[in-house]
């Protein structure tokens, strides 16, 4: 019996090389950011009335240090950098696809919350995305966003004027850095179509209750981290989200929140990527504005 057990364990350990961690990320490299001129596929287009003056669009690099693994990542700040010391800023953490060009319409929309450029907005491309160098991992995801927050801090931003917004995959660094702050502690948390955890992802794609550790070493767990967050929370989720399920992912996160204030916005008819469109851009922006100014 011991012999057979040894064979089984030895076989498993010898073959033990495959994990699906890197499949969480879907980066695409580019040669330049095209922003308004980007002609690739996007979830929706907003009108010209949301356009941003070129003088208020700043593209630059930030050095990110993930436990000694350094990388220069690209960031876009929409707004007047000189006013960061007094402005309220939204840190936008995008989803798992491609690069910031794909999310440019979303970024512009948020830069119009409460009027054009009332709030500053910072977004980054995680390692391996767009022009950012390196390769993303779960820990580098948090390191990259924290590097962006450290940059904001260097410009004079304080935690009481920082909101963090996570869309889909971006929900992971948003929850992580709100629950366990590093350079700055966000004072508002906004999640759109965020997943509950890697465990729910594993379960959702099967008919079985398999733990995520069967497939991946990812430990993303927004559903548990949200319990540690007391900051005001704005939750968006499309009711017909066919990728990050409304009930098993979205509602679990919302219902686990035990903090000071939550606004749950369940959008009928909205799928994963089109929530602002289905909700209506003005209604969406007004909801964000009311949350940040209540």
């Amino acid at each position: 019996m011991k012999f057979y057990l040894f064979i089984i364990i030895a076989t498993t350990l010898c073959l033990n090389a495959c994990r699906l961690d890197s499949n969480l990320f879907n980066p695409k490299t580019i040669t330049e950011y095209k922003l308004d001129n980007y002609d690739g596929e996007v979830s929706f287009k907003i009108g010209e009335e949301y356009n941003i003056a070129d003088s208020l669009i700043h593209i630059f690099t930030i050095n990110s240090d993930d436990n000694g693994n350094q990388a220069d990542i690209y960031a876009i700040y929409i707004g007047d950098i000189n006013q960061i010391a007094t402005d309220t800023v939204i840190m936008y953490c995008h989803g798992n696809s491609s690069h910031m060009d794909v999310y440019w319409e979303r970024m512009k929309l948020l830069a119009n919350v409460g009027g054009k450029n009332r709030f500053g907005l910072l977004a980054i491309d995680y390692r391996g995305y767009g022009l950012s160098e390196g390769e993303s991992t779960e820990s580098s995801l948090y390191a990259d966003v924290d590097a962006a927050l450290a940059w904001l801090k260097d410009q004079g931003l304080t935690s009481d004027r920082l909101a963090i917004y996570g869309f889909s995959l971006g929900g992971a660094p948003s929850c992580e850095l709100t629950a366990t702050p590093r350079s700055l502690a966000p004072s508002w948390l906004i999640l759109e179509a965020a997943f509950a955890s890697s465990s729910v992802m594993a379960e959702g794609s099967t008919s079985l209750s398999i733990p995520s550790s069967f497939l991946t070493n990812l430990e993303i767990d927004n559903a548990e981290e949200i319990k540690e967050i007391d900051e005001p929370f704005l939750w968006f989720h499309g009711v017909i989200d066919d990728f990050i399920d409304f009930e098993t992912h979205g509602e679990v996160v919302a219902n686990n929140y035990q903090g000071s204030y939550i606004n749950k916005v369940a959008v009928e008819g909205a799928n994963h990527s089109d929530l602002p469109l289905v909700m209506g851009f003005e209604t969406y922006n007004q909801t964000v504005l009311e949350f940040l100014t209540r």
Binding site: N23, N26, M201
Partner: peptide, 13 residues
Amino acid sequence: FIFKRFLYFSLFA
């Protein structure tokens, strides 16, 4: 399209 690769996760699961 945004989540193409992400869903390979589903496949293997």
